[in-house]
Every structure is written in C-alpha cells, then in structure tokens.
Design a binder for these strands. Structure first.
Length: 394
DNA sequence: CTTCCACAGGAACCAGCGGACC
DNA sequence: GGTCCGCTGGTTCCTGTGGAAG
C-alpha cells in the first residue's frame, strides 16, 4: 500500500476537460452556421433598446437546429446591451414542455419577474392579472420567450396564448413582445387566425444542418470539452455524418460525442475511437427504447409484444396477424381486447415514435393491409417490455 | 373485365375525467 | 362544491382501394 490518496486519480478524467460543454442545455459562445438567424433575430429585437416594442416572432425548425441556442444567445446579448445603456429591457425564457399547463407557465413567468406566487390555489385568470400588474408596475420592454410552444397549443391552453397575444392592451406603462419557438409548425394551423397573425408578425425558419456544418459545430466544442489529443481524427466526421443522416440534429450529435467520451473513459482508454462511438450509439438506442417502451400504455405494449413474437415466426408481418396475436395475449392476461380499428391506430402511433415502421401493402385478392417491421433490436424491446408486471408471463 | 379480399382510415359518437369558472 | 367544458381514448359504422385471381 502506498500512501497516495485513494482519490487522487479518481475524478480526474483523461478524456474530458469540461464535460458540461457537451450537455444539451449548454449555450456555446459561438454558434457556427447560424449567423444569419442571429443577425435576423437581433435586428427584430433591437427596437427594444430604444423603448419600441419589437414585433412578435415565431421560430420554427426541427429539433437540434439551434433555435433555443440562438434565442438564448441573442437574449443574453440584448440584456447586456440594455444594462449598459440603462434602458429597461428584460428577456424571460420559459419552456412549455417543462411547464406544461397554463398555470405553470404563467406562474413561471411571474416568478421570473420576482413575483411571489403560491404553486397552487389561484386560478389562471388571477395569476395572469397579477402578472400583468407586475409587468405594468415594472414598466419598460419585456420580451417573453416561450420555447416548445406547441405544447401550450396542444394542451388546450389556447386561452392563455390568446391572452398573451393581446397582453399589450392590458398594459399602460410597459410593453411585451413574444417569441414562440416550435419544432412542429403544423400546430399553428389550429390557432385562431388572429392569434396566429399576432404571434407570427415575424418568422424565422431554421433549416437542418448538413454533415459539414455539424462537423464545424462539433469541432467548435471539442477544444473546450476534451483533453488535448484525446479524440481520434475520424471521430468527429463520423459522428457528424451519422447525425446528418438523422435530420441534421446537432443536439443528437453532441450527445453522441459525449456518450462516446464516457464509453472511452469507462473502458480506461486514452483516446476516443470510432468503436466507442458505435458502442455509444447502441447504448443510446437501448436508453431511448427503454424510455419510450416503458411509458407506453398497456395495450400498446401488448400490440408491440404481438408484433415481436411474430417477427421470429413469419417473413412478412401484417396487421391481421398482429391483431390475432394480440387477442391471444389479451386472453392470457385476462384483459378485454380493443377493437381492430383501435389497434390499427396504435400501430400508427408506434410508427410515429419510431419503434416500428409500416408500409401499406396491396396483395390483390388477398387484400390491402399494412406491413410492420421492427425498427429496434428485438432484444432491446423485449427487455423494456419485461419491466411491466403485467407482461412478466412472456 | 369483374370480383373480391383484408384491411385503411374517415366520421360520428360516447363515457369518463380533470380543470376552469362561478 | 356544483356545473359546465373540452379533451382523451375508446367504440361503431362506414366507404375506399390496388391488384391477383378467375
């Protein structure tokens, strides 16, 4: 036994210099390939500095295209500049997925304006009017950013959105601008045209990154995140090309790189290799499968279980087979089966979340049906399904 | 050319429930 | 603390459909 401290080598990474740079909510100092969006947003928001209300803004784009990062980046710059000039402009940021009801959103907005609010007991209307008077008392420009606003639209919380879109008519000494961020532009269609046009006074669209751009983004972070020379040269291009194939999602790319680093670390390796990336990829798949499948409603799990069983027995698996298998599983578990109409819908849902893919098949005399293929390794699915007590029998 | 399969998926409807509102 | 409202997750009933078989 040496007298060396047990901990002297623990907690000191050979791979990471600063792992937090690769965590998804980190806002980097530079945002490569988003210069246009940044200047555009800055231009739209700039009137706030002279006390003029900026137009409301809608920002669309698929996940991992930098919407949130750009919004936070420009917001930080704006508040800095406002402070420097002594002109009162405040930017607040809320996330409608984290705070997924009208009540939570509006209280969160209130809290960010230093308003003390109970977490329950008041009606939304009451909190809203308190927030309004708070804003009015404070005066000046307030910019409210609502990220993942689609949740607010779907959650039948349209009322709040409607109120917010015309909040300025309730204010005398202050003005409010809204920034809405969403990755699902379709949700806008359900909005009242007036709300829609009010929120969408300006629009910024974020295109997916291509492989080359993703490479730049990763490189920009690698320097801060990793110990010098701890990445093999082909790792970043490889990660970038994988992410580019998958809708150009920068967040996924960054996650994958971090996970690869963690794998390398765990294996006591000095450098991150492509093999580590591959392993990281499969670990991510296991994690997401587990997350998706365990959260599925029981009947969806049974449908999936039926599809899983058939996968081994048959070349081509279609809706009808799955349904009969599903009925048998229901009998075994003593559950009342759902109708085939609903099961057909469940298959579509499973397709949406990406566990299976389906394709309509016309087999002439043998009818029109849907072919189902599992997208994920059966063992992973089985593992996840077994977490459910009702499915222990499988 | 016609028939007819095996479903897809739209439409209308319904029970149940949580939340808004008074 | 009751009532109303709109949504969710289902049901029933239905029409539509591409192409192999006859």
């Amino acid at each position: 036994m040496t007298s060396q401290n047990l901990f002297s080598n623990l907690g000191k990474s050979r791979i990471f210099k600063n792992r937090s740079v690769l965590v998804s909510d980190f806002v980097p100092l530079t945002l490569p390939h988003r210069e246009n969006e940044i200047t555009r947003l800055a231009q739209i928001m700039s009137p706030a500095l002279n006390g003029t209300r900026p137009n409301n803004i809608f920002m669309y784009g698929l996940t991992g295209t930098g919407k949130t990062a750009v919004a936070k980046y420009v917001s930080n710059m704006l508040t800095d500049e406002a402070n420097r000039r002594g002109s009162p402009a405040t930017v607040i940021y809320v996330n409608a997925r984290k705070d997924d009801t009208s009540y939570r959103i509006i209280t969160q907005i209130g809290r960010l304006l230093d308003l003390k609010l109970p977490f329950t007991g008041l009606s939304v209307a009451e909190v809203y009017s308190r927030v309004v008077s708070r804003i009015d008392k404070r005066g000046g420009m307030i910019i409210i950013t609502i990220d993942e606003i689609d949740n607010l639209i779907r959650e039948s919380n349209l009322n709040l959105l409607y109120k917010l879109s015309r909040i300025n008519s309730d204010l005398r000494n202050a003005q409010v601008s809204l920034i809405g961020i969403t990755n699902d532009a379709r949700v806008l269609e359900v909005l009242d045209p007036r709300v829609k046009s009010s929120l969408g006074e300006e629009e910024i669209v974020f295109a997916p990154y291509n492989a080359e751009q993703l490479r730049d983004i990763l490189h920009a972070r690698v320097h801060d995140a990793f110990v010098e020379d701890s990445l093999e040269d082909d790792v970043v291009p490889y990660v970038a090309s994988l992410a580019a194939k998958d809708h150009g999602d920068a967040r996924k790319a960054v996650d994958l790189l971090r996970k690869a680093g963690e794998v390398a670390e765990r294996l006591n390796s000095n450098r991150v290799t492509i093999d580590h990336v591959k392993q990281a990829l499969s670990e991510i798949e296991v994690d997401t499968t587990l997350e998706i499948v365990t959260k599925l409603p029981l009947h969806s799990k049974l449908v999936l279980a039926s599809a899983l069983e058939l996968q081994n027995k048959k070349e081509i698996v279609v809706t009808g087979d799955i349904y009969t298998g599903y009925i048998m599983l229901c009998k075994k578990t003593g559950l009342e089966p759902l109708t085939s109409r609903r099961v057909s819908e469940i298959l579509n849902e499973l397709d949406m979340v990406g566990i299976i893919s389906t394709k309509i098949l016309n087999r002439g005399r043998f009818g029109r049906t849907k072919r189902v293929v599992l997208n994920i390794k059966p063992t992973n699915i089985l593992e996840a399904l077994k977490k459910d007590d009702a499915l222990k029998i499988m």
